[in-house]
Simulated scan of single mutants.
Amino acid sequence: MLYFDHAASTLPYEQVVRTVGELMTLHYANAAALHKSGAEAMRLVERARSAVAGAFGAKPDEVVFTSGGTESNNFAIKGTVFSSRKPKKHIITTAIEHASVYECVKQLERQGVEVTILPVDGQGRVSPDSVANALREDTVLVSVMHVNNETGAIQPIEEIGRLLADRPQVRFHVDGVQAIGKVPVRWKEWGIDLYTGSAHKFRGPKGVGFLLVREGLALAPLLAGGGQEDGRRSGTHNVPGIVATAQALRLTMESMDERRTRMYGLRRKLIGLLKDIPELCLNVPEEEERSAPQIVNVSYPGMRPEVLVHMLEEHGILISTQSACSSKSLKPSRVLTAMGLDEQRASGSIRISFGDEHTERDIDILADRLRAVVAKLKPLERSFS
């Protein structure tokens, strides 16, 4: 099988797998315990915190470990809203955010928080001007993802951060789950207050993530309990997962430049081959400066995407529809709909995402088998629409 679903989850590094196993065996004590074994576990956590901080030019106490991207996004958004003393609260976000942001702000909206959801252009990018025009006196948060999880479109984070520079009362949150290890991240330089990461997107373990929190910002905790993470995130530390996250992040960042160069080459090759299949429509920005290297989204209008997914699986290719969190939904992609694509195109999309193991030969195989599947489905096109 050729696995082209790295935007959903990645193969952990072998070193990471070994680290998790060793730590589960050797350092199983609760890091909050007062005895020697607990203190050793806590030293491992703090060493990992320093390593994660160093990868982003942050201070160790600006790193909060969580269970992953969904918790980090919810913590950033709800923690900001619940800590604000403003009588009225307003959030700005975009129509293409991951469900862990989009549904979070929708939940807050039902609870009385005012929400502005900004449109995007045909390439899936939000305009900084629209962010500026949406700002109000009661705005407490702007949340814009770094790299879109369905199309790979890079959002103008630096420009948005610049326009928020003179609005210190407005916090800037960025979901960086699909960006880390694929595109540069300069969170402080770009004026970001809160930045989300998830380990299993950069070859770390599942169920572990972090939120970078700019020094001095107070966030209301989501979880009440033992007061771990300096009172910001209660719950027993996942010591093996946290240490493995730091290890995976180090390995990923060390190879980022080579990875970007190689993946952009694979992306160019795949896009060129897909253009030779007339039934398919590309849904990604072709300009490389506007798109991350690891994601290509394509539609077969009139064809249900799960049919493509299952037929490709029979041919030894694993891909996904939409994001993994939405892949079981039969609704049109919210992201592609926001880009102005019609229902057939937004309903018939598949996502191909690369990993470290892929070669140009793999891209040739993928394109050949996709071409064969499309040729087989062409006579049945209308019956699936």
Results as ranks from 00 to 15, higher is better:
83 S>W: 00
159 E>P: 00
13 Y>K: 02
379 P>E: 08
385 S>E: 08
382 R>E: 15
149 N>S: 15
103 E>D: 13
165 A>K: 14
339 M>S: 00
148 N>M: 07
286 E>I: 12
218 A>M: 05
271 I>C: 02
349 S>R: 00
174 V>T: 10
248 A>T: 09
78 K>W: 03
148 N>T: 11
10 T>S: 15
326 S>W: 01
156 P>L: 03
56 F>Y: 06
263 M>I: 14
63 V>G: 10
309 V>H: 01
328 K>H: 14
270 L>A: 00
352 I>C: 01
282 L>K: 02
360 E>Q: 12
37 S>M: 11
252 T>K: 08
334 R>G: 14
303 M>L: 15
246 A>C: 07
106 K>F: 02
136 R>P: 09
273 L>N: 01
95 A>G: 03
299 S>A: 15
95 A>M: 11
90 H>A: 02
40 E>L: 12
125 R>G: 05
161 G>A: 08
364 D>V: 01
90 H>C: 04
348 G>S: 15
33 A>N: 15
380 L>V: 02
110 R>Q: 12
65 F>N: 05
100 S>L: 03
84 S>D: 01
346 A>T: 01
158 E>W: 06
359 T>V: 00
170 V>A: 01
216 G>N: 01
210 F>D: 12
346 A>E: 00
353 S>F: 03
38 G>V: 13
237 H>Q: 06
134 A>Q: 04
116 T>D: 14
73 N>R: 07
302 G>E: 11
254 E>N: 07
171 R>G: 03
201 K>M: 00
74 N>K: 15
289 E>H: 12
272 G>R: 12
276 D>S: 14
52 V>D: 12
252 T>R: 12
274 L>S: 10
295 I>C: 01
101 V>H: 05
308 L>Y: 02
147 V>G: 03
79 G>C: 03
182 K>I: 10
39 A>V: 12
121 D>M: 09
379 P>D: 07
184 P>A: 06
38 G>W: 10
121 D>W: 08
49 R>Q: 14
294 Q>D: 15
263 M>R: 13
167 R>D: 05
222 L>W: 10
148 N>V: 07
122 G>V: 11
99 A>V: 05
136 R>W: 11
343 E>S: 14
146 H>D: 08
16 V>H: 05
338 A>H: 01
318 L>P: 02
231 G>I: 12
291 S>G: 07
190 W>E: 09
113 V>Q: 08
328 K>Y: 09
255 S>L: 05
185 V>M: 14
123 Q>H: 11
316 G>N: 08
81 V>T: 09
66 T>A: 07
109 E>K: 15
237 H>I: 03
142 V>K: 06
96 I>P: 04
169 Q>F: 06
65 F>W: 04
37 S>Q: 14
148 N>H: 13
159 E>M: 07
42 M>C: 04
360 E>Y: 10
295 I>F: 02
225 G>E: 10
240 P>A: 07
179 A>V: 09
123 Q>Y: 13
92 I>D: 04
212 L>R: 10
285 P>S: 05
186 R>V: 06
198 S>M: 06
17 V>Q: 15
194 L>M: 05
202 F>P: 06
302 G>H: 10
175 D>H: 13
154 I>S: 04
118 L>Y: 09
158 E>T: 12
240 P>F: 11
355 G>S: 14
